[in-house]
Simulated scan of single mutants.
Amino acid sequence: MKKLLLPLFITSLFIGCETIEINTPGFQANLEGIFFKANDSKGIKREQNSYTIQGITENEILTIKVKKSRVGTYLFGGNSESFATFEDKNGNIYSTNPEGFGEVTITARNTGQQYLTGTFKFRGILPGIDTLTIDRGVFFEVPYDYNVSEEDEVPNNTELFIAEINGNPFNPFTIGGIGDETKIIITASTSSNEIRLRIPIDADTGNNVLPTSGYSATYTNNGNTQGAESGFIYVLENNIAERFIKGSFAFNTASSTIEEGIFEVEY
């Protein structure tokens, strides 16, 4: 998967009630008095024209999902299709849904050059433990990716991987598939979390209970890897000639629950 490394240059930073301003591609915010500046930022067009926008440092990741990319304001919280999460260096995930709140405003979208600009603020909840308030958030001309075939009228993203980990949205920054003569390995990761699926290269469509021969799933958090003790991988399509697979999954490890998994990956 292509990664875009985008340097961020701050033209002016104002403390208090004023805003942070940037004029080159970038992603930054105020985390309760701590300045967050991403050294890698990217947008991804998802299914049904939703967009995921991420800013990542060496050990943190801030994710915004907005249900549409039209200029306007989209609210977080409750059962909103738009949400925000912040994953800290310890793998703790603060989320706006369902108990937090906030908003993202798309102020500009350039479909020709494929970038988004906007602002955001939100309160994320680490259930039963802590809250985090993030404000004065700005993403400026963050590029978004998708793949288009000559026959497609609407662009499609061919690298899709979403899930929930212990009730929190998992929005990986890196998605990849590798296939050899016997198996397909699908890996999706953030700075501290990784989900990995193993599927036979000749897998037919249908449901496969975990664990079973040829099929496996693991979840890694901060270097601690646990395998699936129960669950399933459902293969919806496996096109060996085109080297493309899609499906759904859910599984339980000794200490975590992974649900609502969907993947569409080339290998």
Rank of each mutant, 00 (worst) to 15 (best):
G261D: 04
F9N: 07
N49C: 09
A108V: 12
T253I: 05
Y51N: 09
G167K: 03
K68D: 13
F27L: 08
P200N: 10
L6P: 10
F140E: 08
N238L: 12
P143L: 06
S191H: 02
G77C: 10
F170T: 09
V235G: 03
S191G: 05
L31K: 05
T19K: 15
S50C: 13
A228L: 12
E141D: 08
D135G: 02
K42N: 11
I134H: 01
S255H: 05
F14N: 10
E18G: 13
T24P: 04
E58D: 10
N252H: 03
I233M: 01
D180F: 08
F173M: 00
G43Q: 08
K45L: 15
L116G: 09
A163Y: 05
N208C: 03
V71Y: 13
S69E: 11
G77E: 10
F76Q: 00
S230Y: 03
G26V: 01
N252T: 13
V209M: 06
T158G: 07
D40V: 13
T111L: 13
I93F: 02
T52S: 12
I129L: 01
N157T: 12
E237C: 09
I44P: 13
R136H: 14
V148R: 15
Y219D: 03
D204R: 08
F86H: 01
K65R: 09
T85L: 03
L8A: 06
I178H: 03
G91E: 00
F36P: 09
N90G: 03
N171Y: 14
S95C: 10
F120E: 03
S69F: 13
F251D: 04
Y146Q: 00
Y234W: 11
S41M: 14
